[in-house]
Amino acid sequence: MAWAAAPPELKIDWTKMPTYNTIMAVAAGVGLILVVVLGQRLLRGEHAEHYEGWALAFGVLGVILVTTGLHMTLTWPLAGQGFPFDNIIFGEPSLAFGLLLLAAAWYLWRRGGELSGAPDRITLVSRLAAPLSLFVFAMGLACFGIAAAGWTYTLFAAPPQEPISGAFADYPLLEATFISGLYVLVGVGAVVFPFALRAKGGPTVKIVGVCWGLAGLAFMLFGALNYFTHIGLIVNTM
């Protein structure tokens, strides 16, 4: 393989840069997908009898994202080898999304029966989510800021020592565009979300679903791929 051996000049002290945005990307991607699927079921009037199952799923993902996101936000572990900005890019959005998932998990676990028996579930969900939608909107704007920083400073480019992604090391704008594009998708869905709640259907809801669904799938697959590429980078640079 072309990436079997790393150039000797790049060495990273991994004890000073714990990296776990692999599990964060997978959890965030799956979380976005599940939010879209549950929203579709509610809009179609389908009965999601086992709301406890959704609560368990949101709870597991929320714990992962809150734990890793809070640690990254407060301790800046990626600053040890010169990547302090990644703590903001990955840590803070993960923390925010994780807390939202935990809030949803708590409600579905404790009050899922009330939601199931409501004569107008869409109106109930809209009223419940309306206050938090402002925070979702604000984090959407934050995602635009992250995307702009990625393009402006060509962040996210993998070093040549990283398998697969490193093959594009000479084209740093390529990966910057890919990751920034994902943040744009999440941001568009988040900014439109409050308006979709008010509309209770129509094009705004479809925009949120498409943006979050595509971004969730991409984050999930990219995070899974990074289990190989990040392990390869560690082996090649330790």
Rank of each mutant, 00 (worst) to 15 (best):
A158D: 04
E49F: 05
A55W: 06
M72G: 04
S126N: 02
G39H: 00
L34P: 00
L108P: 09
R110T: 08
H71W: 14
L124K: 14
P160K: 12
S126F: 05
G31K: 00
V26Y: 02
G91L: 02
L128E: 14
L70R: 01
W106D: 11
N87M: 09
V35G: 08
F97A: 09
A25R: 05
I164F: 12
R41T: 08
S133Q: 10
V26T: 07
V30R: 09
V36D: 02
V30Q: 06
A129Y: 07
I89H: 10
L99C: 06
G53K: 09
I23T: 11
G112D: 08
L65N: 09
A103V: 12
V26F: 03
Y153D: 11
V30S: 10
S116R: 15
D120C: 02
G140Y: 02
L134V: 13
L132H: 07
L99H: 01
F97H: 07
A104V: 05
A118N: 14
W109S: 14
F97L: 15
G113P: 05
Q81N: 15
A118M: 07
A158Q: 01
A138M: 01
H50F: 08
P131M: 11
G39N: 02
V35I: 02
L99D: 00
E49P: 06
F156W: 13
L70H: 00
S133Y: 06
P93S: 10
L70C: 01
P77R: 05
L101A: 11
A104I: 04
L61N: 04
A104P: 09
R44L: 06
L101E: 06
P160C: 06
T19H: 06
G113R: 15
E52L: 14
L70A: 08
N21P: 13
R110A: 12
A149Q: 05
T68E: 11
L74A: 13
F58E: 05
N21M: 09
W54N: 12
A96M: 12
Q81F: 08
P77H: 04
G91F: 00
D120I: 05
T22F: 13
F58G: 02
L38P: 04
G113T: 07
G62V: 01
L100G: 15
P84R: 15
L74M: 10
P163I: 05
A130N: 11
I146E: 01
G140W: 09
L102F: 10
N21A: 11
I122C: 11
V66G: 00
P93Q: 03
G82K: 13
G82F: 10
C143Q: 06
G91N: 06
F58H: 02
F97I: 13
L78I: 10
L128I: 15
Q40L: 09
E92F: 00
A96I: 13
P159I: 00
L65H: 03
L74C: 05
T123V: 13
A48R: 12
G117H: 10
T152Q: 01
L34F: 08
L32K: 03
I164H: 04
M24T: 08
L32A: 12
G45Q: 03
G80I: 06
E92T: 04
R110P: 09
